Every structure is written in structure tokens, then in C-alpha cells.
Amino acid sequence: MDDAAERTGYRRSAGSPRGQARRLELLASVTDDLAANGLVDFSLRRAAKAAGTTHKVLLYHFASAEDLLAQAVFALRERRIANALAAMADGGGQHTLAGRVGVAWRTLRDEEPGLRRVLDQAVGLTMYDPERYAELGRGSTLQYLELLVSFCPQRWSADRKREVAQLVLATLRGFVVHRLTSDDPGGAEAGFAALARALEREEAVGD
């Protein structure tokens, strides 16, 4: 079979149910490798080794190395969000904005080091090379904002929910950076206590 026919065959099969299943299987293997080893030296060849295939096969299923990386990081952020929601359920549920954000913060603060490391590295890549890795940053904001908007009181307008969600997201990101760069471990906790009080006051305000 010549190269053109091989490429056509792969691309046709990639859209089939079997091809989609194979794509998800590859993505899961690459995602697990990132969680275990970080993404500092991420490459298609490393990803292919983790998935037990070749880099050419990965490129039949994913548009590029950046596409594969973005989708694997998306899956890891979904894992982080699922952990927060599970913690909320285990705690009997939280019925205030401050309470829900508190659970999310504690989950983020105490999560497994490998997950935290790779997601911190993804943010670093976005800042280091925004042209190449802009999608990592945009994807992060969209995923987390959706969760934080869902924490807001139902009676609030869509604009108000988004404004408060933006505030919470930016503040929590700042706390994460503070924990990584400061020798004051209590600083982020003190800051979060102030954020929680502000959210309680915001929720007490009428529409």
C-alpha cells in the first residue's frame, strides 16, 4: 500500500466507531503518562511510547502534537473538576457560594502532586509561549468558569454569575502561585478566608 492510500485509510477509519474508540484509548494512555511524568519534555515520540504505538499513528488520530497535548490537559482538568464535585458530594453538599468555593479550594490545595504539577506546567507553557500554547490557557479558563458559574445562586443574572466566577477564578489562581513561590504557607489560607467573607457578603446582597 502506498503512503497516500495508507493515510486515506487511516483517516477514514479514524472517524468510525472503532476509530473513535481507538482514539480515546490512545488519549487515555497519553493523559496517564502526563499525570505521572509531567509535560516538560513532552513530545510525540514520548506520547507514542506511552501509548504503545508510533508517532505517525498518533498524527492520524490527532491534528498535531499541540492538539494531542491540549486534549490530554483538558482531560486532566476534567479529573480535577470531578475531584472537587466528588468532595462536595462526600461532604453532604454545600448550599452557599462560599461553601462550594471552599470545597473546590481545599480539593485544589490537597490534590495529588502529579496532577497539580502537570496543570501548573500547562499554565507555565501558556505564559512562556502564548502563540503556540494559547489554547491551553483558553481551555483552562472556559472549563473552570463553567464550574464556578454553576456554584452561583440560581437567582443571579448570567452577567452577575460570570463576573463573580471571574473574580473567584483569578483569585484562586493567585493563591496557587503564592503557594508555589512564597515561604509563607499560611498566606494563601488567610487570603482565602478573606475571599470567603467577601463571597458571603456578595451572596447576601439582593438582586
Rank of each mutant, 00 (worst) to 15 (best):
D2N: 14
D3P: 13
A5S: 01
A5I: 02
A5N: 03
E6A: 09
T8V: 05
Y10D: 11
S13D: 15
A14D: 02
G15L: 05
P17L: 11
R18T: 13
G19C: 07
G19F: 01
Q20M: 06
A21G: 11
A21C: 05
R22Q: 10
L27G: 06
S29Q: 13
S29Y: 02
D33L: 07
A36G: 09
A36P: 02
N37A: 03
L39G: 11
V40M: 06
F42N: 04
R45Y: 00
A47P: 10
A48H: 09
A51E: 02
A51R: 01
A51D: 02
A51C: 02
T53F: 03
T54S: 09
H55M: 04
L59Y: 06
Y60L: 11
F62Q: 10
S64C: 03
S64K: 12
A65C: 06
E66P: 07
L69W: 00
Q71S: 14
A72W: 00
F74W: 09
A75L: 11
R77I: 06
R80W: 02
I81N: 08
I81G: 11
A82F: 00
A84S: 12
A84C: 15
A84P: 11
L85M: 11
L85E: 15
L85P: 10
A86W: 01
A87T: 07
M88R: 14
D90I: 04
G91P: 12
G92F: 05
T96R: 13
L97Y: 00
A98D: 12
A98W: 00
A98S: 15
G99S: 09
G99M: 07
V101P: 04
W105L: 07
R106T: 14
L108K: 02
E112N: 14
E112L: 02
P113T: 12
R116Y: 03
R117A: 07
V118S: 05
L119R: 14
D120P: 00
Q121I: 08
V123H: 08
M127P: 02
Y128P: 11
Y128S: 11
P130N: 03
Y133L: 13
A134G: 13
R138G: 13
R138V: 15
G139S: 08
T141E: 12
L142V: 13
E146S: 10
L147H: 07
L147C: 03
V149C: 14
V149M: 06
V149K: 08
F151G: 12
P153W: 00
Q154H: 04
W156R: 08
Q166S: 14
L169Y: 12
L172M: 11
F175V: 04
V176M: 08
V177Q: 13
H178M: 11
L180N: 06
T181K: 06
D184C: 04
A188F: 01
A190W: 01
G191W: 01
F192D: 01
F192Q: 01
A194K: 03
A196D: 10
E200S: 10
E203L: 04
V205N: 08
G206S: 05
G206E: 10
D207H: 04
D207A: 07
